[in-house]
Simulated assay, not measured.
Amino acid sequence: MSPITVVEGRRLPLSNLDKVIYPETGTTKGEVLHYCTITADVLLAHLHDRPLSFLRYPDGPDGQRFFTKNVPPGTPSWVQTCEVPHTSGEATRQVLIQDLPSLVWAANLVVELHAPQWTRDAPGSADRLVFDLDPGAPATIVECCTAARWLRDRLAADGLHAYAKTSGSKGLHLIVPIEHTPSERATAYARALAVEARAALPDLVVHRMTKALRPGRIFIDFSQNAAAKTTAVAYTLRARATPTVSTPVTWDEIAACTAPEQLSFLFGDIAARREHHGDLLAPLLDPDRAAPLPKAPW
């Protein structure tokens, strides 16, 4: 029988806490839950009111992995959910992680946490703009940093401020707080900037997903701004060989990066970084930081 833990008055059966989830580092499921608990304040802040999608990997990154948007079977009744409309006219019901018990419940499933660029009160109305910079080998996150700095400056020219985090995988995410904008318009603007980046940095950047174009280049994925798409949230663990985290970083760190390991962070690194930097993405939570997109056409 699974041990029962009481979290803020909620009874949670936590299973297989000694199970090794990340074999390369020997990281156990119990350690994963501990990380989520000690990082809960910032995780909950960035998850708040955003319908979640889960990439589940209960047997570790080398085991079965499956992506789900629907509420998982057996979800406790006290975990909040919401209906998410679809263009087909149908709606799905998705999980909201609004408190510590819900976060611990989700962590017990062993998940990456992914969210859209809008909240449940305004589905399809983006309050964030995102660029996913994905390197094609032999390019690495080092080359992503060059593309990221170009995008930062280009966004600044339009009165927009970009914040950065590692993807927790190979690349970088740039996130921009914006005034509520239809997701279609946000996507169109992000695509226009990706096309501009391709023209300005033709030997470095591609804006199309075609795999043949991507070796040695940085693919600027603008499509995650679409209403139906999601992005790994800040501070989530990733289903990688080691327990890497999608970690907020400074622009000074990006400017100084000369090797991929300089911008790769494990879950054990996060507490010290937060003590030193605080939450580098806290401005995304401040509605006064949101700026309007420039007027079309782009």
Rank of each mutant, 00 (worst) to 15 (best):
S223E: 15
F219I: 02
I21G: 03
R238P: 10
D269H: 13
L12N: 06
T258R: 11
G74M: 14
T250M: 11
T87V: 14
P243I: 08
I220K: 03
R185Y: 02
L160Y: 00
V110A: 03
A45V: 09
T244C: 08
H161V: 15
W105Q: 00
K19A: 13
V71E: 06
S88W: 10
Y35A: 07
L43T: 07
V176F: 04
G26W: 11
Q224F: 06
C82K: 03
V6K: 12
A162R: 02
F222G: 00
P138F: 09
V104R: 00
P260I: 01
D49Q: 15
Y35V: 05
P51Q: 07
T27K: 02
Y189S: 08
L201D: 07
K29C: 06
A147W: 00
S125V: 13
D221A: 13
T119S: 12
S246F: 02
T210C: 04
L193C: 11
R273Q: 10
A147Q: 02
S125H: 10
V104P: 02
K69N: 11
P3E: 13
P243D: 08
P202Y: 12
D286I: 06
L17H: 08
K229I: 01
I141K: 09
S167Q: 11
H276Q: 15
A291W: 05
W118N: 03
H207R: 05
V233M: 13
D203W: 04
I254T: 00
L55W: 04
R120S: 13
M209F: 09
P135L: 05
T230W: 03
L160W: 01
E179W: 05
S53A: 15
D269N: 14
R10K: 15
A156G: 13
E261K: 09
L47E: 02
A232L: 09
R198V: 09
V6N: 09
V104G: 08
L193W: 03
I178E: 01
R273D: 01
T5H: 14
R214C: 09
P138Y: 07
L129N: 03
S77G: 15
D252F: 00
V111A: 12
A137E: 14
L33H: 03
R152Q: 14
P73G: 09
A256K: 00
M1D: 12
W150C: 09
T28I: 10
T242R: 14
F131K: 08
S77C: 08
L55F: 06
H48T: 08
Y189E: 10
I97P: 02
V32S: 01
L14Y: 13
L213Y: 04
